[in-house]
Amino acid sequence: MEKSTYIYMKKIGMFLFYMMLFLVAGLQILPLVWLLFFSLKNNQEVFNTPLFSLPSPPRWENYVKVWVEGDIGLYFFNSLWITTVSVIFTVLLASFVTFAITRMNWKLKHVVLGLFMVGLMIPIHSTLIPLFNFFMKVKLIDHPMSIVLTNIGFNLPITIMILLGFYNALPRELEESAVMDGCSVHRMFFQVILPMTSPVIVTTTIINMIYNWNEFVFVNTFISSDEYKTLTVGIQNFIGQYTTDWGAIGATLMISVLPILIIFFFLSNKIMEGITAGAIKG
């Protein structure tokens, strides 16, 4: 009898546990639903109807407006390539540094690590004027490279920090056996370390992707030509001197979150795949 009660209790417990999990999951989806509804409203409805009400009729024209009036296609393309290039270089450079700091032997490594960590601590608004001057001097103002470079520079520290915790946990025997086999450092890095750290590489890729995709302060400041602007700047098209078109902003936000959502779902699976791949190699 006691045993069956125990199993019974355990079942109820599991049920409640899953209830909780899915309830929270439901809550976490709501923001997307809200954003969709928001993007189908006009200003009146945005402020005066409940958060999760579908306006009637839904104003799909918001999307038409965003597509026609903003140069969304071009902004989209810019966002895409700037984000891609920035993410690849940030993660790669950060992996190099983390590898050198955690696995290799040199005197200044703690100092260098400290230098990178301090890079986390400066508020971006106080860097705008000095950086503008710098890009002015190297003639990169109004050039997309200025955005790529700042994206990399400002995300390197946080990426290195995240990688650090993982690299510290990697078993050293691996490298030892690799070196015994006469493997060079480069080969070890690319063939052993990178595959083994692929879960965290995917993680930092996701994080960097989100940061770079949503970045707008630097784009606003360093870019003035329309041809180099990115999606986040597109939002400004709907903020006027005295009035703001919230529905169109909602549509822009929705358009800009979709690609990142899809890539995220795709990459998120890679965290698992990476782990299995690493396990086989290891």
């Binding site: 965003v66 009036e69 903003g70 003035s224 098209n237 709907f238 006027g240 001197q241 078109d245």
Partner: peptide, 15 residues
């Protein structure tokens, strides 16, 4: 000549 202003086509179409 560069001209910076506050009236985007989206929110201030007429302007």
């Amino acid at each position: 000549l560069t001209f910076m202003h506050l009236w985007p086509a989206g929110s201030s179409k007429q302007h």
